[in-house]
């Protein structure tokens, strides 16, 4: 579904990604593990077209994404849940969801009712301003909002970060439900154990390089990789 080949991404003059390659097949949950500043967010921004790579190629569903603006990538089926949530604070929870809903042509699989099934807290707080939600609720709203665009592929940037252990468990469940619903997920995480519980495969990124690509079992067992790049 997604193929990233040898991309080099910059912020202005600073070179951040050095030939990152990864692929995600339809229906998979793939994690991208790495510590602070490793380049996880930059990889996701590159895929979403927010910080397009200067070199290398990204293909989504067989089509290149080069030169395609983010709103068109979103319409092709990519959704992005940023690590800092970026909820529209002045809009209510309901409005945050409404503006993301796309009515055009396709059979809208995700609507408010369905995202509320997945995140029941949001239903109760529909009329609340996005800015008045707790951090955890904002994370859910960010995911719910992304689902409202009816994506096929979803980029989750550190969804577990800062969540209470109980909420982390709930979120793992929710990610598995997304997988069951047929979504493909690329999950950037530092919370290795959580990420490994929900993923099918994983990549380890450090300093803008992919250091390791492996199955979950290998990632679980390879202590060397874990201590070298993940600090766990």
């Amino acid at each position: 579904m997604l193929e990233v080949q040898d991309i080099h991404t910059y912020y202005g003059l600073s070179h951040i990604l050095f030939g990152v390659s990864l692929r995600v097949e339809r229906g998979e949950v793939v994690c991208l593990l790495g510590r602070n500043g490793a380049g996880k967010t930059t990889t996701m921004r590159s895929i979403m077209g927010l910080t397009p790579p200067r070199r290398g190629t990204i293909t989504f569903k067989g089509q290149t994404t080069a030169g395609v603006p983010p709103y068109l990538l979103a319409r092709r089926g990519i959704a992005y849940v940023p690590d800092d949530r970026r909820i529209f604070a002045d809009l209510t929870v309901g409005e945050n969801l409404e503006i993301a809903a796309r009515h055009a042509n396709q059979k809208a699989e995700w609507d408010k009712a369905r995202v509320f099934e997945l995140f029941p807290v949001l239903q109760e707080k529909q009329a609340r301003k996005g800015g008045h939600l707790s951090g955890g609720e904002q994370k859910m709203l960010a995911m719910a909002r992304a689902l409202m665009t009816n994506p096929e592929f979803i980029l989750l940037d550190e969804p577990m970060e800062g969540l209470a252990p109980l909420l982390v468990r709930a979120l793992e469940e929710q990610i598995l439900k997304l997988k069951q619903a047929g979504l493909t997920v690329l999950l950037a995480e530092q919370a290795v154990n959580s990420a490994l519980r929900v993923s099918d495969r994983g990549y380890v990124i450090d300093d803008g390089h992919i250091r390791f690509a492996a199955s979950i079992n290998e990632l679980r067992e390879n202590q060397e990789i874990r201590s070298k790049y993940l600090l766990v």
Partner: peptide, 12 residues
Amino acid sequence: VDREMVGVLGIN
């Protein structure tokens, strides 16, 4: 407040 995020939602 956040035009980039609005674009990410598929809005031109």
